[in-house]
């Protein structure tokens, strides 16, 4: 019972932390230069690993799609299958998992180190709110960059799928592209980007909170980072189901 109570208290503290960060977002001073720096770190810094992951995800989807569909002569649908799978599911989820491993852990470690070396206390004594200075720029940057990275993942993934489908598996390019156009619409793309937006906001809150609440030196920072990655990964999968369920219920 004690462990459950502590987990619920911890979850409540994280919600309060996120709410505090939201209130600081709309209060001056606005720190655009910090937001841009974080957009570069999270967005540009993650683009290579996201592109590589997207490329191989698209390629393997094309292989699997061709293997499954050729038995009933539906190879032409591989393009649509790859595109739908990417934009609705794989791009937002894989991007979020990859960026959590790369940037979520970095955010948690950086803020956690600042906490245990009293840099956050120092900031407070200088009349600067650390939530506004440290968490808000990271949350805004992640919320903006996750959809951009998701689009990158989808684009590179589709190109990878096209190369495998058309050039390797010899699917005619006409049906490949035609079925993509007929099976994917703006609604599918928006569905994926909405997920990315939610993942970006939630993951950045988790990572910042785990760093901010770190205690006990290097060991505490390490534990906080591990918890940030584990909690974020689970949150991504749960939220993915919830958003998909709500979206499909609406349809």
């Amino acid at each position: 019972m004690g462990a459950i109570r502590r987990s619920l208290e911890d979850f409540g503290q994280m919600i309060l932390f996120g709410a505090e960060a939201l209130t600081w977002m709309v209060r001056p001073p606005y720190r655009l230069e910090l937001v841009l720096a974080q957009m570069a770190a999270i967005g540009a810094g993650s683009s290579f690993i996201v592109a590589v992951t997207g490329l191989f995800a698209g390629m393997v989807l094309a292989l699997q799609g061709h293997y499954a569909m050729r038995s009933f002569g539906a190879e032409g649908y591989v393009g649509g299958f790859v595109a739908v799978a990417l934009v609705r599911e794989l791009a937002p989820v894989f991007t979020a998992l990859v960026v959590t491993g790369r940037s979520g852990s970095a955010i948690s470690t950086e803020i956690g180190t600042m906490r245990v070396t009293e840099q956050i206390d120092a900031m407070e004594t200088m009349a600067v709110n650390p939530v506004q200075y440290l968490a808000v720029p990271r949350m805004l940057a992640a919320t903006l960059m996750f959809p951009a990275l998701t689009m990158l993942f989808s684009t590179v993934g589709y190109l990878g799928g096209y190369v495998i489908g058309v050039d390797v598996q010899q699917i005619p390019p006409g049906p490949f592209l035609d079925h993509t156009r007929s099976m994917v619409d703006v609604h599918d793309i928006m569905h994926g980007l909405l997920k990315a937006l939610i993942f970006g906001a939630v993951i950045s809150i988790i990572a910042c909170y785990r760093g901010y609440s770190a205690a006990g030196g290097a060991k505490g920072v390490g534990e906080g980072t591990t918890r940030a990655v584990v909690t974020s990964s689970i949150a991504i999968l749960i939220l993915d189901y919830v958003v998909t369920f709500v979206s499909l219920s609406g349809d």
């Binding site: 950086e110 070396t117 009293e118 840099q119 206390d121 120092a122 900031m123």
Partner: peptide
């Protein structure tokens, strides 16, 4: 601060 707490970034 005891450990100076300079911002290392």
């Amino acid at each position: 601060f005891q450990g100076s707490a300079l911002f290392d970034s």
